[in-house]
């Protein structure tokens, strides 16, 4: 059992949890993820490591409540326990050389996995330009944290309730136009359509772009192949070969399609869960 040490509500749907997992914390590096199960009948879901504290032996996860499992996770409070918590899985992100200029793009709950990477770059003495975006101001997370580790921070909202009214790609395009040649690398994490849009944009400027993928997984150790993704024409397992890949090589259409495999079942699970909650649970 893994104890939830702290819980923070970042927005209506985004929550942060610090979980006691000393073995995982000892090894965790930016870019890696964990897999957890909420309860005995639960599914295994991968979540990116948003932060880790070796001394306290804790891992921070930030998640958006979208389906049954994340909503159920959201009902737990500090002091509660998770049934399973395993990691760190996947490869750590390679840091660009110290001379490089980096633009980091985070969309929605994707700001959470971007944050530890920017923090690592910042700690390595690099200057990072960050762009974060969300549908609306209330859903924007980690703004202060991102500002603290970024040289410049640009904020966008789809509905214009904060910062630039529009997409992160609008801001990114301006930056690329202004100082395209100075930028060595772009790191983008967010919803698939955002990562695909960023990738398409940066391809035309020929700037190396890394994305962190979050496909459906089961074991997370390369055993099942559920998370396979075509990268540069080859099948890769996101859990062991990634989750960070060169965006320009990723087949986003296939990835998007595969992420829809269980839409129907996800809907059923969620409806059942909501119904149980309304009727006060079956216990």
């Amino acid at each position: 059992m893994f104890k939830i040490v702290t819980k923070k509500v970042l927005s209506e749907v985004n929550k942060l949890m610090e979980v006691e997992a000393p073995l995982v914390a000892r090894k965790a590096e930016p870019g890696q993820f964990i897999i957890l199960r909420v309860h005995e009948n639960g599914e295994r879901i991968p979540l990116t490591i948003a932060d880790s504290d070796k001394e306290k032996g804790t891992i921070t996860i930030i998640y958006q409540e979208v389906g049954k499992t994340t909503k159920e996770l959201g009902t737990l409070e500090a002091g509660d326990h998770l049934c399973d918590f395993v990691g760190p899985l996947g490869k750590a992100m390679e840091l660009p050389s110290a001379s490089g200029r980096v633009v980091a793009v985070g969309g929605g709950v994707g700001i959470a996995p971007v944050y530890p990477k920017v923090k690592a770059l910042h700690n390595a003495g690099m200057e990072v330009i960050s762009i974060i975006g969300a549908q609306t101001a209330d859903l924007l997370i980690l703004e202060d944290e991102m500002r603290a580790v970024s040289k410049e921070l640009h904020v966008c909202t789809d509905d214009g309730t904060k910062g630039h009214h529009g997409f992160v790609t609008d801001v990114l395009k301006n930056i690329l136009e202004e100082k395209g040649k100075e930028i060595d690398e772009i790191v983008a994490v967010g919803p698939l359509p955002m990562m695909q849009a960023v990738s398409n944009l940066t391809k035309s400027y020929d700037v190396k772009t890394l994305v962190s993928l979050n496909p459906i997984m089961v074991d997370g150790t390369g055993m099942c192949g559920c998370c396979r993704v075509t990268v540069g024409g080859e099948t890769k397992f996101s859990c062991v070969d990634g989750p960070v890949f060169d965006a320009h090589q990723v087949d986003f259409e296939e990835l998007t399609r595969r992420s829809h495999t269980y839409l129907e079942e996800e809907k059923i699970a969620l409806e059942n869960f909501e119904q149980e909650r309304i009727s006060g649970g079956g216990n």
Binding site: N41, E43, R44, K68, V218, D219, C224, C226, E265
Partner: peptide, 20 residues
């Protein structure tokens, strides 16, 4: 994957078990 979903994760008991 097919067998892990079914055996370890008990997908044959979905939606009582969460894995489909």
């Amino acid at each position: 994957e097919f067998l892990t979903r079914t055996n370890l994760m008990k997908a044959y008991l979905f939606p009582d078990w969460d894995t489909p």
